[in-house]
Design a protein around this nucleic acid. Structure first.
Lengths: 118, 118
DNA sequence: GATCTAAGTTGACAATCGTCGAAGTAAGTG
DNA sequence: CACTTACTTCGACGATTGTCAACTTAGATC
């Protein structure tokens, strides 16, 4: 292959997904965006992967560190992709290994969704 | 058994779903429980329904108030059932109408999942 | 080059999901 | 009783999802 314009770099800055859920009814656009995040966390395997990465030392984890969740390696890769596409994780290859970390401001943004307003 | 015999279980349906996601890796049981909640919020229609109820005056909303989300009324009922089964909503019939409200401690419990620990 | 390990992609499959129309239940009105 | 309104449940349909085996890509080492 030649001039590959690789560099996925889909990870634009994660802006707040939505206002607090009890502040006002979400618009359709807000609901689409936020539900995509919750949907990604709505699988027990994916949630465990996310938790393992979020709680790992230095805030990042190699796939080899977290692939012990009871499913095959391709399935782990599939779930990590889903989490990445939802904007929850970022990935970076360093040598042989690929490291995942929670995307910036994701925790704060989601926490805000459930913060009690009023 | 312990000496707690008159323990009221009415509000025990929603206990904290899990520790903060960046505190430690979730157990399978924790992941099952928490992912069920996120899964329920992982649909745009359901998330809008939840937001409409959570933001409604007096903290409760009649189905007739929130059924304008772009799908048929049986589908609304189906989604509300999913949210109820996930422990996110409670419902009560008063006369002709059925009122939904966010189950106790759900907002705080989910906010805690994303609170930054450490 | 060849070979090994790490991780991602593809293809296929059963299982689950979202949706609707039709039918059913519950409560109020006359 | 019949009729209306407000939901819920049922049955069916296409669409999406989670999973694995097989294959491919990427990097390190020989």
């Amino acid at each position: 292959m030649s001039n590959s314009k690789a560099l996925p770099l889909i990870q634009a800055e994660v802006e707040p997904c939505c206002p607090p859920l009890n502040e006002r009814p979400l618009t359709m656009e807000e609901a689409d965006r936020a539900s995509a995040m919750f949907k990604a966390l709505g699988d027990p395997i994916r949630l465990r992967l996310f938790s393992q990465i979020a709680s790992h030392a230095d805030g990042e984890a190699c796939v080899c560190d977290i692939s012990d969740v009871g499913v095959s390696q391709p399935t782990v890769s599939h779930h990590l992709k889903k989490l990445r596409e939802a904007g929850l994780l970022t990935s970076e290859r360093r040598g042989t290994w690929v490291y995942y970390r929670v995307a910036p401001s994701v925790m704060a943004s989601l926490a805000r969704s459930f913060s009690v307003s009023g």
